[in-house]
Amino acid sequence: MSNPSAFGHYRVDARIGQGGMGDVFRAYDTRLNRPVAVKVMRATAAASHQSHRFLREARAVSALNHPNMVVVHEIGETPDGEPFIVQEFIEGTTLRALLSEPMPVERVVDVARQIARALCAAHAAGVVHRDVKPENIMIRGDGFVKVLDFGLARLTTPGPDDLVTQTNLETAVGVLLGTPAYLSPEQAGGRAAGAEADVFSFGIVLYEMLTGRRPFVAASSLGVIAAILSEQPLPVSRVNPSTPRALSDLVQAMLEKSPEQRPTGRDVEQQLALLLSADAPATASAAASAAIRSTV
């Protein structure tokens, strides 16, 4: 896609991102005088029925209202029939950029709890993100976290085009090629992915935040997928001994191969809240460990 000059009343300033399904532009809303981000689905993807699903699920995400989730302002189509989403422009740094340096455990827990809140809100509304990774998490200068890019999201209440079809498998292959390190076993195995898949991917992100490395590493994308499907990662506390036992146990539970054995997003948020408790950290840690063990 060449750089367009405008999408309706959104003046395009610059291309700021590019992915498997489309491009992201920084733009300016000339009606409301505010910067926005515009994500445009590529014509090759829009040519299939994915366009319909993209817009339907974008409408569902736009109805979500949570401070830790990017706000969707508008959806539409270009004159060429390419679907686009207009969302708030976030001034901040991606979690990926922040991971270039070690993060204190307290900071990790604070950021993780905000991510958990956003995912809980999405799951409660029947929306699964399906692409939780550091690149899709922004931290503003004031420490506020925003979860971005629901472009691969799906509804947990399926429509007729959410059945496991060849088109869905092609979408899954696109994800595999893009971010294999953060796939759940369900996604890696080509199975349906529910809210539990987001918890697994979030567990990978949390593992990386605490240790500076991913739990599943191999020389190729296929090797990573094989590891996700079959290998057990070293506990976080073995890699980073300064990690509280309760937090290490939580991450290990999130990385259970079986979706039914993982804590829910709400469980994760509650355990992180216990760990953030400033009143009695030792008691909170013990309580969190006990609660985590009861979920697995």
Rank of each mutant, 00 (worst) to 15 (best):
F144L: 10
A46R: 02
V173F: 14
H73A: 07
V127I: 15
K133E: 05
A60Y: 00
A192K: 12
E135L: 14
H123T: 07
H73C: 07
F84A: 02
T179A: 11
L55K: 05
R26I: 06
R238A: 14
A116N: 04
T295N: 06
A46V: 07
N65H: 13
A45D: 03
V164W: 04
F84E: 03
P104A: 12
A290E: 14
L95K: 04
A14V: 05
V251R: 03
K146N: 08
L148V: 09
S62I: 00
L55P: 01
A226V: 02
H123M: 09
V236I: 12
E231Y: 00
H66W: 01
L276A: 08
G126N: 07
R56V: 10
K39N: 05
A219Y: 03
R213N: 09
A218R: 08
G194S: 13
D110I: 05
S230E: 10
E269F: 05
V217K: 10
P4S: 13
L32G: 05
R245P: 01
P83N: 08
R26K: 15
T179I: 08
L255R: 04
R117F: 08
Q87M: 15
P102L: 11
S184Y: 04
I90C: 09
D162L: 09
S48E: 11
A273L: 13
Q50N: 10
S184M: 06
S258H: 14
A97V: 09
P235E: 12
D110V: 09
D267T: 04
G19V: 04
R59V: 10
P67Y: 03
Q252G: 13
D279Q: 13
G223V: 06
Q18D: 12
D267P: 02
I292S: 05
A45C: 11
T30A: 12
E231I: 07
P235K: 10
L95Q: 04
V199Y: 01
G141Y: 10
R42A: 08
G159E: 13
M103P: 00
G76I: 07
L64H: 11
I228E: 00
F200H: 12
L98V: 04
G212L: 07
V175G: 09
S201D: 06
I90W: 00
Q270W: 06
V217L: 11
R245C: 06
D131H: 10
G178Q: 09
Y207V: 02
K133A: 00
M21R: 01
L32D: 09
A188W: 03
E106W: 05
Q114G: 08
V111I: 15
P233H: 05
Y207R: 05
P263Q: 04
R245K: 13
A282W: 02
Q187S: 10
L222I: 13
V224A: 00
E269S: 14
Q50G: 08
A291Q: 14
R53F: 01
V105L: 10
F25I: 07
A278H: 12
V128I: 14
D161L: 13
P215N: 09
A219E: 15
A193S: 15
G178N: 10
A58C: 09
G194N: 11
F202N: 04
D142T: 11
A286F: 07
G174V: 05
A116C: 06
L176E: 02
